Amino acid sequence: MGNCTFLEHLSVASNFISVIIPDFLLGLPRLHELAFQDNEFTGIGNSSSPLVHLDISSNRFSGNIPDVFHNFPTLSRFVSHSNNLFGGVPPSLSNTQTISSLNLRNSSLDGPIDFNCLKMVNLVSLDLSNNNFSGNIPANLASCRKLKSLNLSINKLMTGQIPESFKNFESLSYLSLAHCSFNNLSSSLKIIQHIPNLTILVLTMNFYSEHLPFDSDLQFKTLKALVISNCRLTGSLPSWLHGLTQLQLLDLSSNQLTGSIPVNFGDFQSLFYLDLSNNSLSGGIPVTTLTKMNN
């Protein structure tokens, strides 16, 4: 295969191949995409390569992510989830200008989240969920001007606060911060509401036993999905929810909310999924709510 000089795409996904990714493949002059997911690969060679897409997810890679990404000067998409990796993100990856999509979820990566967002000018999607990252959420993430999707859920970010700089996200549309031990829901929502293009917000398993804020000044004009479940939140269904005119999904399940479902919940023109289960709500279900959802 080292003689396949015109080869541009190679997929051996979902086999039982158990080797280090060989240098002769990485050295092929036109190879732009390698799909090696769901195998038993254990390492990666050290040759320079014109790769654009590299998927090594669900293999047997272990230890630190190798600091070899200076050998991939055109790499745009790197997927390495579901391996046995630990340690941090190497400098050659956290400083690259070409990466647009980076998926490192479901490993054992740890230490601080350290990205040079002033250099990562093309980053669009970042998934670091289900790892052991700790410390602060870096304030400079908002400097990634093209970032549209950010998933930091299920980590050990114990500082408890969402950075004020999140107001400066320009392109972000998907944000998941579930299960990260955040506190001060009121302050967090006041910051997040300033993200101008946010459509999906997931805050599950945070803000334990806090009060669901009733601040009528909260506005999320572009939000289509809001999930704040499993937080043991107290209080009643707040009036600012009625201002979510684009809302399609609302999940406030597994909290400790009381009171009744407001009549104007029927004003949600696009709502197709509503989960208020496992709360302490009382009274009836407004007819307008059922009518709107049936339509």
Rank of each mutant, 00 (worst) to 15 (best):
Ile261Gln: 00
Ala139Leu: 13
Ile154Val: 12
Cys231Ala: 14
Ser209Gly: 02
Phe265Ala: 07
Tyr174Phe: 14
Thr204Pro: 02
Val202Ala: 02
Gly259Ser: 08
Leu274Arg: 03
Tyr273Trp: 12
Phe272Gly: 00
Leu276Asp: 06
Cys231Phe: 11
Phe166Met: 10
Phe214Gly: 04
Val202Phe: 12
Leu157Asp: 01
Leu150Glu: 03
Phe214Ala: 02
Lys221Arg: 14
Leu226Lys: 14
Asn206Tyr: 05
Gln193Arg: 09
Glu170Cys: 11
Tyr273Ala: 14
Leu247Cys: 11
Asn184Thr: 02
Ala178Leu: 00
Leu150Pro: 01
Ser181His: 08
Leu244Phe: 04
Cys180Gly: 02
Ile200Tyr: 12
Ala142Trp: 04
Ile195Ala: 10
Trp240Phe: 13
Gly259Cys: 08
Ser236Val: 13
Thr204Leu: 05
Leu226Cys: 11
Ile162Asn: 05
Ser253Tyr: 03
Ala178Phe: 01
Lys146Thr: 06
Gln193Ile: 04
Ser165Ala: 15
Ser165Cys: 06
Leu223Gly: 02
His194Gly: 05
Ser171Ala: 15
Phe272Asp: 00
Ala139Ser: 15
Asp251Leu: 06
Ile191Thr: 15
Cys144Phe: 10
Phe220Gly: 05
Leu271Asp: 01
Leu271Gly: 06
Leu244Glu: 09
Asn230Gln: 12
Pro238Lys: 00
Ser216Glu: 14
Val263Trp: 00
Ser143Glu: 15
Thr234Ile: 08
Ser153Cys: 02
Ser239Tyr: 15
